[in-house]
């Protein structure tokens, strides 16, 4: 790629600096002077859109992973093998509190998006911090719930129902944990480098991920907690 006068820049062909141009009196544009076009390492608008689409496709495949786990739970939630049933184990007001933590964090994540779009760096960081704390609250409650279940003897190996429960809810919890790490990394990146185009593209992906986890949680509390208790 580096040998000829043509360089592939953001998927489009462009002349390299130095190779331009015939006729020095021709009007000088960015390609001919070559400064901004080639020094610029920020993603091109089209590239940012492609990044988002790629991330979106990853989220959709993640849906399929969860679909498998949801299907397993839906089939096996009655197979308690003489062990504790969902009705005995689940504390719905506790789950409702967890749900509100995650829902509020999704909302504050949206406020962070608005702050980012308004070019307010400190407000973005502030709302991300609030989102992070709410997410941390959610995951802490979940770990507390798991610890309580294990202390009661309701472990993953007790019955098919509990195996599915821990796999499904645990996988979601693992995603939330990854989201929190992603968020922490982005907060450091924004604090250090500001709202650059690269950081914006990554923040957009992180925000998509966070909202997506809330959608999965809607499925979790509806199927795992509410439906299982009703049955």
């Amino acid at each position: 790629m580096s040998n000829g006068p043509i360089a592939l820049q953001d998927g489009a062909l462009a002349l390299k600096p130095g190779y331009a141009n015939h006729g020095a009196d021709a009007p000088r544009d960015r390609h001919q002077t070559g400064e901004a076009v080639f020094v610029d390492v920020e993603p091109h608008p089209d590239v940012a859109g492609t990044i988002q689409l790629g991330f979106w496709i990853y989220l959709m495949t993640d849906c399929l992973l969860f679909a498998g786990l949801f299907a397993t739970y839906a089939v096996l939630h009655g197979h308690t093998a003489g062990g504790p049933t969902p009705r005995q184990l689940f504390d719905l007001p506790y789950t409702l509190t967890e749900t509100m933590f995650l829902l509020c964090s999704s909302f504050t994540c949206g406020l962070a998006t608005l702050a980012m779009n308004a070019d307010k760096k400190n407000a973005t960081l502030g709302w991300l911090a609030v989102t992070f704390v709410l997410g941390l609250g959610f995951i802490s409650m979940e770990i507390h719930e798991f610890a309580g279940l294990v202390a009661m003897g309701a472990t993953a190996e007790r019955s098919a129902f509990l195996s599915c429960f821990f796999t499904l809810v645990g996988t979601h919890g693992l995603h939330v944990t990854c989201g929190l790490i992603f968020m922490a990394v982005m907060m450091v990146a924004v604090a250090k480098k500001g709202l650059t185009a690269t950081n914006r593209a990554r923040l957009n992906c992180m925000m998509l991920f966070w909202h997506f986890l809330d959608i999965i949680w809607v499925g979790v509390f509806s199927l795992v907690y509410l439906s299982a208790v009703v049955h």
Binding site: W56, M60, T61, C63, L64, G68, F70, A71, A74, V75
Partner: peptide, 18 residues
């Protein structure tokens, strides 16, 4: 398109399993 695909697949996996 990707969402539609995911919704169809989730429907097949969930509905089919049940």
């Amino acid at each position: 398109m990707a969402l539609l695909y995911a919704v169809i697949m989730v429907g097949i996996i969930l509905g089919g399993s049940l």
